[in-house]
């Protein structure tokens, strides 16, 4: 469903992506692994049109992704950004409703609210609190839930484990699996490679702007390019 072909991107003069090609198919969980500065976030930012690529193409469901970031979510592709980026001055409920901003089906929105509350009961309890008053883990839950509210076909997750306690990370990855089972394809970008490999079908290893290795979960786990990408040669 997502096809990226020869993608190049740069910040100022620095090239962050130097010809990345990858694919995500319906129903898959695909992980993009790599150390800090490998270009993982830039890749996601290109897909959601926050960063304009200098070369290459990104197709989603057969069409090029729209030019403006605000048109992307309407195509069925939602980006849950790094660092959670929740609306700290909005209540938890309003945060979720912003996730459904472009939708005009009150019944469906209500259903998805219930679904999110079932996945994360904490969010129901804290419905009327400000987003900024949640703990880090709750904020990550909120960010993912806000993404669910857009009813996406593909969800891009940027470092969902960042700065969270291991027990919370486990919980969040369980939920990611559940979201996938319910029919949403997932593309997850992670520094926490083993955690990501525990839930993905396939993985790509990104190293300074280039795909170094790709394969199924088992192939990547058995290959030494993963440790190389993180630890150097």
């Amino acid at each position: 469903m997502l096809k990226i072909n020869n993608l190049h991107a740069a910040y100022g003069g620095i090239k962050a992506l130097k010809g990345v090609s990858l694919e995500v198919n319906e129903g898959e969980v695909v992980a993009v692994l790599g150390s800090n500065g490998a270009g993982k976030s830039t890749l996601l930012n290109c897909i959601s049109s926050v960063v304009k690529p200098t070369e290459g193409s990104i197709e989603f469901l057969g069409n090029l992704v729209p030019k403006h970031d605000y048109d992307v979510v309407g195509t069925g592709l939602v980006h849950v950004p790094e660092g959670r980026q929740i609306f700290t001055h909005l209540t938890v409920r309003d945060n979720l409703l912003v996730g459904a901003y472009l939708r005009n089906d009150p019944k469906g929105i209500k259903e998805d609210l219930d679904r999110v509350h079932k996945l994360f009961p904490r969010l129901k309890e804290r419905e009327n609190q400000y987003g900024g008053h949640l703990s880090g883990g709750e904020q990550q839950m909120l960010a993912i839930s806000r993404g669910i509210m857009a009813r996406p076909k593909l969800m891009l997750l940027d470092e969902p484990s960042l700065g969270l306690a291991p027990i919370i990370v486990n919980q969040i990855f369980e939920i990611i699996k559940e979201i996938n089972k319910a029919g949403t394809a997932i593309m997850i970008v992670e520094q926490n490679a083993f955690k990501a490999l525990s839930i993905c079908d396939r993985a790509y290893i990104l190293n300074v702007g280039l795909i170094e290795k790709t394969g199924t979960r088992e192939e990547i786990l058995c290959d030494d390019s993963l440790s190389k990408a993180y630890l150097g040669e």
């Binding site: 926050v50 980006h79 980026q85 700290t88 309003d94 912003v98 901003y101």
Partner: peptide
């Protein structure tokens, strides 16, 4: 209110 709180993310969510 969403834009006032976080402009970039508001854009990501379709505003």
């Amino acid at each position: 209110r969403a834009i006032a709180s976080n402009t970039a993310t508001a854009g990501l969510l379709g505003i």
